[in-house]
């Protein structure tokens, strides 16, 4: 569990702080990478040093609504490349508009979280999420396959 990091793509600084706080509360030692927009996420996943980042990455928390390149585009990019298509991607949104959610699942989102108003509730959700995707779920990594 300690070896893997969590990528949080979130444009709102308040939410960044609150998400990081919730994740830290859930798992004290996990490494958290916070990016502010979709382009930054794409650069991180496909740019220089991406292989090292991918090796450490356990799960992606992707906000649906992002400036410039939005969450659905980033998700589409991740699922289109064999290097990244194994990545667990959890969509995070403050809206419960069914249209975008359906689109997200169609593009291959693994799960979805509607950010609750109550912080304790949010902390509980993050706890469950980190435990499942970083400890219970074992994903076949593209990098490890390549190593063998």
């Amino acid at each position: 569990m300690e070896g893997y990091s969590i990528l949080v793509v979130e444009d709102n600084p308040d939410d960044q702080v609150l998400t990081v706080r919730a994740l830290k509360n859930a798992s004290k030692n996990c490494q958290i990478v916070v990016l502010e927009d979709g382009q930054a996420a794409i650069d991180y996943l496909f740019g220089n040093g991406a292989d090292e980042a991918l090796n450490k990455l356990g799960v992606v928390l992707l906000d649906l609504k992002l400036p410039r390149v939005n969450g659905l585009e980033v998700l589409n990019k991740i699922r289109s490349s064999p290097r990244t298509n194994w990545l667990p991607v959890i969509m995070v949104t403050s809206s419960d508009e069914p249209g975008e959610l359906l689109e997200a699942y169609r593009l291959g989102a693994n799960s979805y979280i509607n950010k609750p108003i109550n912080l304790r509730e949010f902390t509980d959700q993050m706890n469950v999420l980190a435990r499942y995707w970083l400890q219970v779920n074992k994903v076949p990594r593209a990098g490890s396959v390549r190593k063998v």
Partner: peptide
């Protein structure tokens, strides 16, 4: 649902 909730969540989150 998105933009109004966000600051509300911030208020509530930071209060908590």
């Amino acid at each position: 649902s998105h933009d109004l909730r966000q600051p509300l969540r911030a208020i509530e989150g930071f209060s908590q």
